[in-house]
């Protein structure tokens, strides 16, 4: 589904990604872990199409297409979804209106008829239940005055509404208490299907207790320096990142 080869990216003068290689197949969950500043969020942002980064080299293929050629909205229409680490508050734009616009724009891109009000409401009711989303939040402006947990829940709700093929969760666990974490993780699990995939970007192992990954990769200094199965995450939880840093720095 997704094939990243030797991806290098910079922001301004500073190179952040120094050659990422990663392949994600349909049905898989990949966790990307790593210490602060290792490039995890940069990778998530580059995949979603944030303009601030300059691609220096490498390629990203998504469902047989060159992803780097596409605008962010085209990537969304192709099935990429980024759950933001810090969801933006947008006063004056209601969540419902925003989602209806997003869904119907994606449908238009795919040559499908727009959802009518009844179909849209039906889908919304169904997905709200996924993440225990309160109706009153939806009538408010997008994320405005939402608590940290409500914002993250809203991200997963949007993900449920848009039904992406590849979901990238960027530090979705940060700022969540254990109950909110469980609700968010359950939502993500319910959305798992054999034909979609998930990349979970996280600093801590605890989210992975709930969203169990098939593969765990450690990102350090702009490269994936270690890959393994879910046991690797447990090892990191126990020993921290220093031993990996030491290993990598010794080789260099």
């Amino acid at each position: 589904m997704l094939k990243i080869e030797n991806l290098q990216a910079a922001i301004g003068e500073k190179q952040i990604l120094k050659g990422i290689n990663l392949e994600v197949k349909a049905g898989e969950v990949h966790a990307i872990m790593g210490p602060n500043g290792s490039g995890k969020s940069t990778l998530a942002s580059v995949l979603a199409g944030r303009q601030d980064y300059e691609i220096l080299s490498g390629s990203v293929e998504f469902l047989g297409q060159d992803l780097l050629e596409l605008a962010p909205e085209e990537r969304a229409a192709q099935g990429i979804f980024l759950a933001f680490q810090y969801p933006i508050e947008i006063p004056g734009v209601s969540t419902v209106n925003f989602l209806k616009t997003a869904i119907n724009e994606i449908r238009k891109y795919r040559g499908q008829e727009p959802l009518d009000a009844v179909q849209f409401l039906k889908r919304m009711k169904e997905k709200m239940a996924f993440v225990n989303m309160d109706q009153s939040l939806l009538s408010r402006a997008l994320n405005e005055g939402f608590s940290g947990g409500e914002k993250k829940r809203n991200e997963i709700f949007q993900m449920a509404m848009l039904e992406p093929k590849l979901a990238i969760l960027d530090e979705t666990d940060s700022g969540l208490d254990i109950d909110a974490l469980r609700i968010v993780a359950e939502g993500v699990n319910k959305l798992r299907r054999p034909d979609n995939a998930t990349i979970v970007v996280t600093h801590y192992q605890r989210l992975l207790d709930y969203i169990v990954p098939d593969y765990v990769h450690v990102l350090y200094n702009g490269r994936i320096v270690k890959s393994g199965t879910k046991e690797l995450a447990l090892e990191l939880e126990e020993k921290g990142y220093d031993w990996i840093k030491a290993e990598v720095d010794a080789v260099a």
């Binding site: 979603a48 199409g49 944030r50 303009q51 605008a71 962010p72 909205e73 990537r75 969304a76 229409a77 979804f81 980024l82 933001f84 969801p87 933006i88 947008i90 734009v93 925003f98 989602l99 616009t101 997003a102 869904i103 724009e105 994606i106 891109y109 949007q158 848009l162």
Partner: peptide, 17 residues
């Protein structure tokens, strides 16, 4: 970027904001 990442084209995202 937030709006675009949800599939809303640039012109529409701008008009919405």
């Amino acid at each position: 970027f937030y709006l675009q990442s949800r599939g809303i084209p640039k012109d529409k995202a701008r008009a919405l904001l």
